[in-house]
């Protein structure tokens, strides 16, 4: 287990290094931030001074080198726009995004697993057909369109829920969150639902397929022959088997929830890192974009590691060790 974790940490550092190179080259190729950042009527001297102050006159490799040296000391640069450390900026916004992502995943799991069970245990029934048709809609309708429809129905027509912003936040165990106030909750429902719909469809399908594959197996029939109740068979024998693929996929999807949050945050004006990224790209605020991607990649790596550990707890046939 220890060997496994050490190996994963080394691999992760390599991945982070590769990402930073790619991102650095990529953002360099997009354009020169100086054109956007200084006023159009600035003199050539002012322009030169700004370029030098930001270090943009140096060759790419030199810029990358100083970035790397700073990065190893925990400094990912200062935002051109806000003149604040880029990492600090991201961590200010991160809780809002994480909150959105967690609530979205919770909705997907809390609704998706029972719906998938109902559909899988009664295949071809009316309930199954209804749930599966719904999940096709969740899959195929574009995320941004679903968001706009949610706003139209629940904010404009019904007027039940606010359509933008984060609302009032409060503190639970020292964490600032919208979950602490009714106003915050109201603001959270629509964006979280928007982000959850796709994952919900995915969880429904995974659960349904898992149930359909597990139910005809011999060990289920044997469990019946032992006289176990149907409830125990489904909640223990079937569930523990289908949790393995669900945890794997949902864990990996958590990363993509954060990535997809870019769209949702833009639609609902949610002040998270996704919106920060879009804003920073528009003004070519290089340090923020680079820092954002590195933070997200790190989160992906950590999540995958956690998934592997949970996976080995769920499936006794898998032991993390030297063999992997």
């Amino acid at each position: 287990m220890t060997v496994f974790i050490i190996r994963r940490v080394v691999q992760s550092l390599l991945v982070l290094f590769a990402t930073s190179v790619l991102v650095f080259i990529g953002i360099y190729a997009i354009g020169n931030p100086i054109d956007i950042m200084i006023p159009a009527d600035a003199s050539a001297v002012e322009r030169e001074a700004a370029i030098q102050a930001l270090g943009l006159d140096r060759p790419l490799i030199a810029q990358y080198w100083s970035f790397l040296v700073d990065a190893l000391q925990g400094d990912l640069g200062r935002s051109f726009v806000f003149n604040q450390p880029a990492v600090g900026l991201i961590f200010q916004r991160l809780p809002a995004t994480l909150e959105l992502a967690f609530v979205a995943l919770a909705i997907a799991l809390i609704l998706g697993i029972p719906l998938g069970l109902i559909a899988g245990l009664r295949p071809k029934s009316v309930a199954d057909e209804t749930i599966m048709t719904g999940s096709i809609l969740g899959f195929s309708l574009p995320n941004f369109w679903q968001g706009m429809m949610l706003i139209m129905i629940f904010s404009i027509w019904l007027g039940w829920l606010p359509s933008s912003g984060r609302g009032e936040t409060g503190e639970i165990f020292g964490v600032t969150t919208s979950l602490a106030s009714l106003d915050g909750l109201k603001h959270l429902i629509l964006p979280a639902t928007n982000l959850a719909l796709f994952k919900l469809s995915l969880v429904i399908r995974l659960t349904r397929t898992g149930v359909r594959e597990t139910m005809p197996l011999d060990f289920i029939k044997f469990a019946r022959a032992k006289g176990l109740s149907e409830r125990r068979i489904v909640s223990v024998h079937v569930m523990k088997n289908i949790m393995i693929p669900i945890v794997t996929v949902v864990g990996m999807e958590f990363g993509s929830v954060i990535a997809f949050a870019v769209v949702t945050e833009t639609i609902f004006a949610w002040p998270g890192i996704g919106k920060l990224l879009i804003d920073s790209i528009t003004v070519l605020d290089r340090p923020v974009v680079v820092a954002y991607l590195l933070v997200v990649v790190t989160m992906f790596i950590v999540i995958n590691l956690l998934v592997d550990i949970v996976y080995s707890m769920l499936d006794p046939r898998i032991r993390l060790g030297d063999g992997q």
Binding site: F219, K226, G227, L228, V236, K240, N241, P316
Partner: peptide, 29 residues
Amino acid sequence: RGKRIAMIFQDPMMTLNPVLSIETQMVET
């Protein structure tokens, strides 16, 4: 079932739930 009439299946590789310990599977019975 399991109390007065029990059943043994053909393929022992398939009759026990792979993700539950023998203890769980016996105690629940």
